[in-house]
Structure formats: structure tokens, C-alpha cells
Simulated scan of single mutants.
Amino acid sequence: MDAAGRAGFAARGLIYVLVGVIAVQIAFGGDGGGQQADRGGALGELAGQPFGSAMLWIVGVALAGMALWRLSEAVFGGYGPDGSKLSRRAAALFRSVFYCFVSYSVLSYAAGDRGSGSGSSDRHTDDVTARVLDWPGGQWLLGIAGAAVVIAGGWISVRAVRRKFRDKLRISAMSARVRPVVEGLGVTGGTARGVVFAAAGVFALVAAVRHQPGKAKGMDDTLRAFRDLPAGPWLLALVALGLAAFGVFSWCNARWRKL
């Protein structure tokens, strides 16, 4: 099970690094090579590389390993004294379901279904938001969901800044030179990831308040929104490098995570 979890972290890291690279290109006036700065864009970028098809299969299987490892945490409990708490088990189950979906979309894309996994996160977000707003009380539900995402983003960033990830890493196994690099990647990457989450939550709140599905944004449009701010290209580049740093930090988890 350890191998499955570590493979999943490696695959997650690759996706975040590719998203970061695409976002950096977008920051300075490019179109990201025609790719979206989201998971679908990352898969498209990977597919275009030598042995891209094989890499897609490897990533999909590795993400399935992540889902299986998270499921084992939900069933048997995770690492540490609080690993068997109900809240930890519930969070692990949610992550398992999420990675099952991601793995399925990647494997479907690898099998030739180019409409799976590579779809625009922005279009998907618009569709989901429109459906929710059509429900009775949908405006309130979307607003609550948006607020929850904002809070989650802030929580992710704060935990990163406070280096809470250290508890889950085998710090003693790192050399004195490697340790500060890994911690720097964790702080930078986790903070950037939290900022993107929070920004997406704000757009969902705006969509709820204005009852306009188009105001909600997926990952690609959320990142592009940073470019439209004062000093936007540099701000987007900073966030993009942070996402890439989170990808590299995921690779560090593949090596030193306590599983």
C-alpha cells in the first residue's frame, strides 16, 4: 500500500508541475501552448510528449494507487495517534473518491476518449454552477459552497505557512541541506495552492450573489484572473511557480511521506 500512495504523490506532482509551466507561459502573454492551465491542459501537454500515451497510463494507474491508499486510511486509519479519528477517516474517504474520479478521467483519456479528463475546468464549472442555481435554494447552496472553498483555501495556506506538513514527513531522514529546500517548497507550494482555492471560492460567491453562473471560474480562468490585476503577469507568474513548487513538494512526499 505504501508503494501505491507514493506513486500517487509522484503523479500528482507531475500534474501540478505541468499546470505551473502552462500558467507561467500564460502570465507573459502566451496562450500556454494552446493548453488550459488545469488538469486537462496538463494531460494534453503530457500526451504531446514522446511516450506521452504510456505516461498517461502510468499517471492514471498511479492516481488509482493514491485512491486505494486513501481508502485504506479511511478503513484502517492513517499514520499517527490521530489517524483513526472519525474526521480523519472521513477526509480520507472523500479524497479516495476524488482520486478515483481523477484516475478514471486520466485512464479514459489515455484509452482514447479525448473528451474525458481533458475537458475545460472552466466549462465544467459553468455547467455545474448553472445546475445548482436552478435548484430550489440553489443560490444559498452555491454561496455556502463558495464560502467553504474560501475557508478551505485559507486553511491550506495557513497550515503551509505554519509548516504543519512537517508532521507527515520523515524529516530526520533528510540531510541538513535537503531539509530547508523541502520545507521551502512546502510553504511556497501550499500557500499558492491555498490562494488559488480561495480565489475560486470568491468567484463562486460572486456567482451566487449575482445569480450568474458565468461568474464562477475553474482553475484556468481563476489563474488567468490574476493576470488581469495590477502587476498581474508577475502575480500570475508567482502563483504559477508556487503551483509548480507544490508539484515538486509532492515528489518529496513520494520520497519522505510517513505512510
Rank of each mutant, 00 (worst) to 15 (best):
A231R: 09
G137P: 01
G52V: 03
G20K: 02
A74L: 07
G247I: 12
W155S: 05
I171L: 15
V181T: 10
F226A: 01
R131W: 00
I151S: 04
A92H: 04
G189I: 05
W135I: 03
M219Y: 12
E73Y: 09
P233L: 08
H211M: 09
G48L: 01
G194W: 00
A237P: 01
L107Y: 03
A27S: 15
G112C: 06
W140E: 14
R177C: 05
L93W: 09
L71W: 13
A47W: 11
I58M: 07
S121W: 03
G112S: 04
D220P: 02
G154T: 00
T125V: 12
Q49H: 04
P230K: 05
Q212S: 14
M219A: 13
A37M: 12
Q49Y: 02
V102A: 09
A64C: 06
G34L: 06
D38N: 12
L71G: 06
A152E: 07
C100R: 09
V161S: 06
Y16M: 15
I22S: 02
A37I: 03
L259P: 00
M55H: 06
W256K: 02
L185M: 04
G30A: 14
A207D: 08
G65S: 03
P136Q: 06
M55L: 05
P213Y: 11
K168A: 12
A240V: 11
A110R: 03
M55I: 00
G48V: 01
G5V: 12
F246I: 03
R123M: 12
Y79C: 08
V75D: 12
R166C: 11
A92R: 07
V178K: 09
M55Y: 06
V128N: 07
M219Q: 13
S120V: 05
W135P: 00
G5Q: 13
L56Y: 02
D82L: 09
F101C: 03
A173P: 02
V149C: 04
R255N: 03
F197S: 09
L236N: 11
Y109V: 01
V187Y: 04
V182C: 15
A240Y: 08
R6C: 06
A111L: 09
A176D: 13
F28W: 15
W140H: 09
V202F: 15
G44V: 05
I15T: 15
A27M: 11
R12P: 04
D221Y: 06
A192E: 06
V59T: 10
W234E: 12
A240T: 13
A11V: 08
A198N: 07
A62V: 00
W251I: 14
D122Q: 07
R179E: 12
F98I: 01
S87A: 12
R163Y: 02
G40Y: 12
G117T: 02
W140Q: 10
Q212N: 15
G33Y: 05
V195I: 14
I22C: 12
G143S: 04
G190R: 01
D221T: 01
L243M: 10
V149N: 03
V202T: 10
L236C: 10
L46W: 03
G40M: 10
Y99I: 11
R210E: 13
L133H: 07
A47G: 05
V24R: 13
F76W: 10
S121A: 14
